[in-house]
C-alpha cells in the first residue's frame, strides 16, 4: 500500500521541452512556467500553434479531482465557468515515473491588482458583478469555489471580465473545503466553519477585494473580526463597497444573488445621483451654449466673407 507518489521526485519541465501524452499521444511544447500552487505547476504550452495551459502534479489524485470539476463545468451550457478542458493524459519520464496532467484553455490578462492600478478602482463594481454572477451559477450547480484568491483570478480583456483560472479548491456543497489559503479562509479569521457553503466563497470574495487595497495582506491580531473591520474602514474609499465588505465579512449574505443585487442597486444609484447633480447646472446653460455656438459659426462666416 506504499503510495508511489511519496517516492516520485518532483517534476520540472524545461522551456522547449516536448510533452507527449501516454494515452492520446498529443504533443505539447513548453513555452514557459505560468505559476505553481499547493498542488501542481502550470505551464504555458503550444499545441497546434495555439497557446494552451498545462497543469501537472506529482499528486495524480488531485489532478484527477480537478478534471472531474472542469468536466462538470462544461455541462453548464452558455456560461463560461472556468477555463475549458482540452485534454487529460499522463506524462511518463525517461525514469518511468508517471505524472498526470491536463490541458486547459489559456486565459491571458492582468492580475486584478494591476488592472485596478492601471484603470482605477471604479472598475471594481463591474468586475465584481461579473464574478458574483459566475459564483451564483456555480453555487446553483451545487459547488463552492473554495480557494478564491487574487492568484486564482485574471482580468481577461475585450470585454474586461474577471475569470478564475484554477479550480483546485472547488468542493461539493456540504463537504469540507478541499483547498484554501489562510488569508482568504473564513475559519482562519474566526468568521465561520470550513464547510463548503455559498457564504464561504462570499467571505473569500471580501478578502479578494481587501487584498487589492492591502497587496501584502495583514496579520489577524488578537481579535481577528475587529482587525477586519478596522482594515476595511481604513482603506476602502468607496462607501457602498465598504458597506458590502462588512456585510460579507459578517456573513449576513448567504447567497451570491444577494451580493449581485446589492452591487447592481449601488452601481445604478451612483449613476442617477451623478446625473441629477450634473443636469441642473447644464439645463439653464444650454441656451447660452447654443447661442455661443451660433455666434461662433456666424462670426466665422463673416470672417470668411470679409476675406
Amino acid at each position: 500500500m506504499i503510495s508511489p507518489t511519496s517516492k516520485k521526485p518532483d517534476v520540472r519541465l524545461r522551456k522547449g521541452q516536448i510533452i507527449i501524452g501516454k494515452w492520446h499521444k498529443r504533443q505539447y511544447q513548453v513555452i514557459r512556467l505560468l505559476g505553481s500552487g499547493a498542488i501542481g505547476t502550470v505551464y504555458l504550452c503550444l499545441y497546434q500553434n495555439r497557446k494552451v495551459a498545462l497543469k501537472m502534479s506529482i499528486q495524480s489524485a488531485a489532478i484527477t479531482s480537478e478534471v472531474n470539476v472542469l468536466k462538470s463545468f462544461q455541462a453548464v451550457q452558455g456560461h463560461h465557468l472556468g477555463p475549458a478542458l482540452i485534454d487529460v493524459d499522463d506524462y511518463v519520464t525517461s525514469a518511468g515515473h508517471h505524472y498526470a496532467f491536463y490541458i486547459m484553455e489559456y486565459i491571458s490578462g492582468d492580475t486584478l491588482t494591476s488592472f485596478i492600478n492601471q484603470n482605477g478602482n471604479q472598475w471594481l463594481s463591474p468586475l465584481l458583478l461579473g464574478l458574483v454572477k459566475d459564483l451564483e451559477v456555480l453555487h446553483k450547480q451545487g459547488y463552492v469555489f473554495g480557494d478564491l484568491k487574487l492568484e486564482n483570478l485574471i482580468v481577461a480583456r475585450n470585454p474586461a471580465k474577471l475569470r478564475w483560472v484554477d479550480v483546485g479548491g472547488t468542493t461539493w456543497k456540504g463537504r469540507a473545503i478541499k483547498e484554501y489559503t489562510e488569508f482568504y479562509d473564513r475559519a482562519y479569521w474566526g468568521c465561520g466553519t470550513r464547510k463548503a457553503d455559498a457564504g464561504y466563497d462570499l467571505f473569500a470574495l471580501a478578502m479578494v477585494i481587501l487584498r487589492v487595497y492591502y497587496p501584502d495582506g495583514f496579520a489577524r491580531g488578537q481579535n481577528p473580526r475587529k482587525t477586519l473591520r478596522q482594515k476595511i474602514d481604513q482603506a476602502v474609499d468607496i462607501e457602498p463597497l465598504k458597506h458590502l465588505l462588512k456585510q460579507l465579512v459578517d456573513q449576513t449574505f448567504h447567497e451570491a444573488g444577494q451580493v449581485h443585487r446589492f452591487l447592481l442597486t449601488h452601481a445604478m444609484k451612483r449613476q442617477t445621483t451623478r446625473a441629477k447633480q450634473v443636469q441642473p447646472i447644464n439645463e439653464p446653460l444650454y441656451p447660452v451654449v447654443e447661442m455661443i455656438g451660433v455666434l461662433t459659426v456666424g462670426a466665422g462666416y463673416c470672417l470668411y466673407l470679409m476675406l
Binding site: W23, S65, K71, H98
Partner: peptide, 23 residues
C-alpha cells in the same frame, strides 16, 4: 491494477469514489 494505471477517463470515476470515502 492501480488507479494511476487506469486510462484518465476511468480514473475520474474511481477518484470520485476516493473523494467520497475521504469525506
Amino acid at each position: 491494477t492501480t488507479i494511476e494505471e487506469l486510462p484518465p477517463e476511468q480514473r475520474g470515476e474511481v477518484m470520485e469514489v476516493v473523494d467520497e470515502l475521504g469525506e
